[in-house]
Structures are given as structure tokens and as C-alpha cells.
Write a protein that binds this DNA or RNA. Structure first.
Lengths: 326, 326
DNA sequence: ATTCCTTATGTTAGCGGTATCATGCACTTT
DNA sequence: AAAGTGCATGATACCGCTAACATAAGGAAT
């Protein structure tokens, strides 16, 4: 930066201003500075800028897993919006496992992000204390926690599965099961409750078939159907906690020669690309994955700039999409 | 840190050492420092540490898109290895579009990463100059460029599709087509060439069916098959540039009532989870997605630590997996 | 002409750590 | 006894940039 300043015959602070607040530099000077920057190939050091300005222009986000694609649309939504506003994203994986999340959060906070976006609300006490000590805005997403740390963006997982399960009952299915993991994911647990709500309301006995801990794989869905065929032949429909499980189940039904939905109706969750593309097309809950990311980003920026008060909760809703599989 | 130092009754530099090089601090002192850190809930400022030490412990990675899940396994591989070594990942999206990549690279380099991992080799001149000026190790991945910037980790996309296409010819299919995008992705282009190689060697005329620019969607595969049905009814097999397209095609065949592989044999690329789960299970090219990430991370760390010389190229190979769809 | 703005630019002092060199001390070695 | 060695710790000077305040010059208001 000193080089650029010398070439443009200005002081360093003017170079800094030409970069951060160009409107406060005379147009002619700005051109000289820009020419000098281009000449030497100057790439501003954002690390130093962060330290000096106490604003890193970084937002940290914690997702349960990067490998699974569930959150990639959400991350893309955040990323698209944040980059446009000059922010960078740093991603930490690991809240499927409570222990891990603490070390992830320490590292992320070490980078002094201006905001923090979290998935999953069950954080260890120390993690929660660190987050509070950081005194930065926090947005929780993908659910609407009863006792949010700060703000939240999501929808009711429970109401969503309640709706789709009730729909199956209304459609005339006699024995509707719930297939998904029983632990390891707060959102899956809420979905389980939504299913239970619907069964209880309709005077049915819930039937739960458990799958391994998340991240869920297609194979888990296939195995669950195989088990249902042996142990619960009466089941004629099921709500899955994810399209991934549902698609695995769908293929398994094809192998078993089961008609879908004739012999076995399948309802997924997520409305991933494959849900609409499959034959039969999958009935599922459509959730605004990309929009959750965008909205979380918008909210965190609003909080950072002080334009939005703390404690906002945004319910983006869901939509049950009835297709051929039910 | 000053607080911690005072409580532990040492100087700041000793706190710093207790953190970075604990073996160089007397055990008894270290315990005092650790107790003090726990007491005040000290989270070291990695931004300041980066500036002072000129090592950010950050690795930047550029992928064509975050939303698509193709690279998420690779990112997970990198992330797993890097976090274990105390490094953080910052991700930039946007080399499907050449213009975008320059601004992405500027922002990433602004964070002063210790290393850079790139996907895709066609970079604008200015981007390439910036990368060279940054004087940090670079690893390109997912292909083996003829003229790498520094190191590379990948496999031959061309040889992979050459192998699978040749296999289809050997298996007796008469009219094998290639279905994929014709531009926008260097790797897809290399795959196209591999197909062409196989056709030419076997004295066949290549048949290309184009799909929209990446990221590819299932729908594109379905539409391509619909078009093939009308315009090239003689086609009895096809190589797709991705499992995503292939699965879309598979569902489309089910809708058309086409037997797979009887009427139309399908070969994908990538060996995603769905390839094995589908019925019929998908013949495809298995590529070490996770391992590419791990190896790229290992290579970049080796380069950073000066243990590995520049210019290494690691070919992780591929494997053609013959399943039911061909 | 004096005062008061406004605009463009500069000076100084950090931001929170770490590299580097220096220091003090106990223990060998000659 | 003098000198050398290794270890634990400390003092100082930055790292590259920006916040905050200072300054200068020109124009408008009085």
C-alpha cells in the first residue's frame, strides 16, 4: 500500500479511502490511485484491514455436515447475498456431534467474524457462553427454536410433518409409519413429533421405524423398507425424514416388486431435485432451502449494521407437494 | 491476552507460546496460563496472529459451484484434513464463469491464505498473474492440466470416458452417444474428447447430444433422452458426463417405457450414492472425490511446510464400475 | 474582511498478536 | 574459576491497515 501511495503521490490513508469510501476521494485522485494499484497489482490485505477496523467482513456459519448436500443450497443462498455486500463466508462443520461443535466454534470465533449463523440449537454450555462473549449477532436457521440465542430463520419442522402425515391419513392410508433417525438431529426429532401429533389426533397408533444416525443415506431408506416388509407388513404408507431416505425406499420397492403408491405410499422431506424427477414423482415437503440462506444472510447483515433489532424470528413456511408416490 | 498474562503472572509472549508452542513453556507455567485462559474465556484472535506471524493458517479453495453437490465430498475431504492440522478453509465459488473468477480470487487472496486450491485451469491472465504474485503454493484439482500452475491432484477425465465408452462398444452396443454440455466446463470437454477417442478408434461416427451449461440437472438428462428418442432413434446406449444427467435419463426411460439397458443403456460419471442405489443400478465411472480433497490438502500443507517440492502431479485414477444399466 | 462551512487530504497512534534478540539462571565442561 | 551450554522467559519492534483527529484551501455567509 505504501508503494501504491508513493506512485499515486498521496498518503496511505488516501489509498485506503479510495478503496473503502471512494466517494470521499476527489475523482481525479481516485483515478491516479486506481492506476497505481493496477500498475503494481495491489491486493489489499484484508487481514490487516480487519485488525485495524475491528470489522472482519466475515460471517461464520456452522452446519452439521458439508458433505451432505442438504445445506449446500442454503450456503449458496448466503454466499450469493454476502459476496454481493463484500462479505466472506467461513464454514465450520460439526454440530451433529455436540462435542465437536465447541472446538469448531472456537476456531470460527478466533477469526473474529462479524456475525454467526448456526444450524441446530443444542449447544454445549461453554459453546453458548463463548458465543455470548463474542458479542456478535447470531442467527439460528432451519428451525425456530423456542428459546433462540438471538434471531432465527426457518420453519416448523413439526408442523410440516404433521401436515403431510395428516394428509396421508385423509387420503385413506390405514397404517402410516414414520421412518427416520431417532436421534442425532434436532430437526429430525421435531419431524417425528409432528408425525406423532397427526397419529394421535386421528386415533392411530404411531409406528416408528428407525434408521441410523444422520447424515441419512439412501441405503438406510432401502433397509428400512426391507425391515418394514418383514416386521410390519401392514404398513401401507410412510413419512420419511428426508427425500434421501425416501428415494432409497422407492428403489427398494421397485426391487421388491411393490407398487408405489399401490402397495406402499412414500412421502419424503425436502423437495430435492430428485423428488420431482423420480418416477413415480415423490410427494414431499418443499422447504425454502436457498431462501433460508438468503434470509439468514440478510438478517445477519441487518443486525451487523444495526438496522434490525435483536430477537427477530422469521418463519419462511413450507409447502406439502402431493405427487405420484402417495 | 494481556489479561490472561497478568492473571497467570507472565508476559504476553509466554501466553502466546503456551498456545502455539506449548512444549517450549515449563509445564507448571503452562498450567497457570491455561487456567487463566479458561477463567476469562479467552479466544485467541487469529486475525492478529495472522498479521503478526505472516501465516494465516487459512487455505483458500475455488470451486465452480457450492450448490451442486459434486464438490462437497472433496471439500469435506480437505476440510477434515485441514482442521486436524489447525487450518481453516475459505471457499469461493465461481469458475464456471471466467469473469467471476477474477473477483473471487482477489477476495480470497485478500485474506492472505497460506495456500490456494483451484478447480479448473482456464483462468484469466490477470487472475493468473495475481496468483503468481501471491507467492503461495497452488494445487489444481479434479484434472491434470498439461501446464499446471504448480501442483495438481486429479485423474484423466478423458481416459475415464474413453474407457467407459470403449466398454460400451465392446459390450455390443451399436450406436453409442455422448450426452453432456459442450462448453462451460473444462472437465466435461475432456470427457467429450475421451468419448470421441473411443468412437474414432472403433471406426464409429460420434453422436453428440448437447445439454445446457453446467451445473447439470436431472431434467437436462431427461430432456436429452426425449430428444434422442425423436431425432436419433437408432441410439441404443449413451455416456453421460454426470450421474445427475444419467439418473434423469433413467427416469425418463421409465416414463417412455424403455427398458434399461434393453432399449437404452446408460453410463454415468461420478459414482454418486444414487448410482448404486438406483434400479437398475447405474454403470458409471467412480472417481475418488473425497480422496482428491484429502490429497489436495495434504499436498498444499506439504508445500506450505516446504516438505514437498513444487510441480508435483498426483494421478488418483478412476475406476469404471459396470452395473445393471448397461 | 472575518468567520464559518465544506471538502480533500494528511498525521499519529494503535488494532492484538508474534519474530527476534536479549537476559538470567542452573548446570557442565575445561 | 572461567567459559560455555541449554532452557525458560522477557523487552521491543513491528505486521499492514484504519479510526480519529488535524490541517489546508476554497467558497459562502455575515
Amino acid at each position: 500500500m505504501a508503494d501504491v501511495a508513493e506512485i499515486a503521490d498521496v498518503s496511505m490513508i488516501t489509498v485506503s479511502r479510495a478503496l473503502r469510501t471512494p466517494e470521499r476521494v476527489a475523482p481525479e485522485t481516485r483515478l491516479r490511485v486506481e492506476a497505481a494499484m493496477a500498475q503494481v497489482g495491489y491486493v489489499p490485505d484484508l487481514v490487516a484491514a480487519s485488525l485495524a477496523s475491528r470489522r472482519s467482513r466475515v460471517v461464520a456459519v456452522v452446519v452439521p455436515t458439508i458433505g451432505s448436500s442438504i445445506f449446500s443450497d442454503t450456503i449458496e443462498g448466503m454466499s450469493d447475498l454476502l459476496h454481493g455486500r463484500g462479505y466472506q463466508l467461513i464454514i465450520g462443520a460439526g454440530s451433529y456431534d455436540k462435542e465437536g461443535s465447541e472446538s469448531v466454534i472456537t476456531t470460527l470465533l478466533g477469526r473474529r467474524p462479524d456475525g454467526l449463523i448456526l444450524t441446530g440449537s443444542r449447544h454445549a454450555k461453554r459453546a453458548r457462553r463463548m458465543i455470548e462473549d463474542a458479542r456478535i449477532p447470531v442467527v439460528e436457521m432451519w428451525e425456530l427454536p423456542p428459546k433462540p440465542i438471538d434471531s432465527a430463520v426457518g420453519f416448523s419442522n413439526r408442523a410440516a410433518v404433521r401436515a403431510i402425515a395428516a394428509g396421508l391419513v385423509e387420503a385413506g392410508y390405514r397404517n402410516v409409519a414414520f421412518i427416520g433417525p431417532s436421534e442425532g438431529d434436532a430437526r429430525a426429532t421435531q419431524r417425528r413429533q409432528g408425525y406423532a401429533d397427526a397419529m394421535v389426533r386421528n386415533g392411530r397408533t404411531p409406528i416408528f421405524i428407525e434408521t441410523p444416525r444422520p447424515p441419512s443415506q439412501m441405503e438406510h431408506g432401502a433397509a428400512a423398507v426391507a425391515r418394514a416388509a418383514r416386521e410390519h407388513p401392514e404398513i401401507d404408507a410412510a413419512c420419511f425424514t428426508s427425500d434421501v431416505l425416501a428415494i432409497g425406499a422407492l428403489f427398494q420397492c421397485q426391487r421388491l416388486g411393490w407398487k408405489v403408491p399401490g402397495r406402499f405410499a412414500i412421502a419424503g422431506f425436502g423437495d430435492f431435485e430428485i423428488a420431482a424427477a423420480a418416477t413415480p414423482a415423490l410427494t414431499t415437503v418443499s422447504v425454502p432451502r436457498y431462501k433460508i440462506g438468503e434470509e439468514a444472510a440478510r438478517l445477519i447483515l441487518g443486525r451487523i449494521d444495526g438496522e434490525i433489532p435483536a430477537g427477530q424470528a422469521v418463519d419462511l413456511g413450507f409447502e406439502v407437494i402431493w405427487r405420484e408416490s402417495t
